[in-house]
């Protein structure tokens, strides 16, 4: 089955949310105006994010982060022949040039910078290839997506998207029941923490906005991020929650109701 489409219709934040919730493993390819990004996931976590036409070798990443000197960078490049990131990483650690943590942090910064750029893509054809592993020479990381989703959502300016995602501010929120959900591992801004502190089925989003002095755009953006990161869920409106259970066949006895549904089932089975 294909997981494909256009970012115009299914924004990058929602794609990450889907990958996160479904704990997907594979490669997400996004193409926009001649630029191609390949983002690899393992069990719903970010393993690697690469731009196809950019040098994302470990040597280049470390050099750009000023973790190795220009001379060492040139020496590695002049060595000739392709050296795998994993192999180079080991050599640099063993030679005492960098620590393992430095390598992982630098790669993490690099992957996050690619993800940040993807959040700015309004359009772009995407497809997800299940079980496609990162290139063999790359060092795969294991980054949770919630923080990235929250960060990307903070930059959404289009009221139209936010209105579509959250048309009604008179609904309330509750914390997600997913067992792996843990607010403590997510880096929230002060504004986001304020909203989180009011998350309660008794408070509508509009009331939370008033209590936190946020306008419609601000509160929608914060709630959108929390929703996409899977931290909260929307509850039905108070009116909907209080709906009395509709009697499906009000004028009939229990036996008549049972009989009617059984006849429907029998007939449809026989089609």
């Amino acid at each position: 089955m294909a997981l494909q489409g256009n970012l115009r219709d299914f924004p990058f934040a929602q794609l990450l949310n889907l990958v996160n919730l479904a704990r997907k493993t594979g490669m997400l390819e996004i193409i926009q105006k001649g630029e191609t990004a390949h983002v690899y996931f393992r069990d719903g976590r970010l393993a690697c994010a690469l731009m196809a036409n950019e040098d994302s070798s470990l040597a280049s990443v470390l050099y750009q982060n000023q973790r190795i000197s220009p001379n060492l960078y040139r020496a590695i490049k002049n060595k000739g022949g392709a050296i795998w990131d994993k192999e180079l990483g080991l050599q640099l650690i063993n030679a005492g040039f960098v620590s393992r943590e430095t390598i992982l942090n630098s790669l993490q910064q690099h992957h996050v910078s690619v993800i940040r750029r993807l959040f700015t893509w309004q359009e772009g054809v995407f497809r997800f290839i299940p079980n496609e592993p990162p290139p063999e020479d790359k060092i795969a990381l294991n980054m949770e997506l919630e923080n990235l989703i929250m960060e990307g959502s903070r930059h959404i300016q289009e009221m139209e998207i936010l209105m579509d995602e959250l048309p009604n501010l008179d609904v309330s929120l509750k914390f997600s029941e997913r067992p792996e959900n843990n607010l403590r591992k997510v880096n929230l801004t002060v504004e986001e923490w304020k909203v989180v502190s009011f998350v309660n089925p008794k408070n509508s989003i509009r009331q939370i906005a008033q209590a936190t002095s946020m306008d419609d755009l601000q509160i929608r953006r914060v709630v959108y991020g929390l929703l996409q990161a899977g931290l909260v869920e929307v509850l039905k409106t108070e009116q909907a929650r209080q709906l009395p259970q509709t009697q499906l066949l009000p004028n009939q006895s229990k036996d008549e109701q049972r009989s009617l549904v059984n006849r429907l089932i029998t007939r449809i089975r026989g089609l």
């Binding site: 066949l249 109701q257 049972r258 549904v261 059984n262 089932i265 449809i268």
Partner: peptide
């Protein structure tokens, strides 16, 4: 759908 309706009844 009918099985859900059945359960609900």
């Amino acid at each position: 759908l009918l099985h859900i309706i059945q359960k609900r009844l």
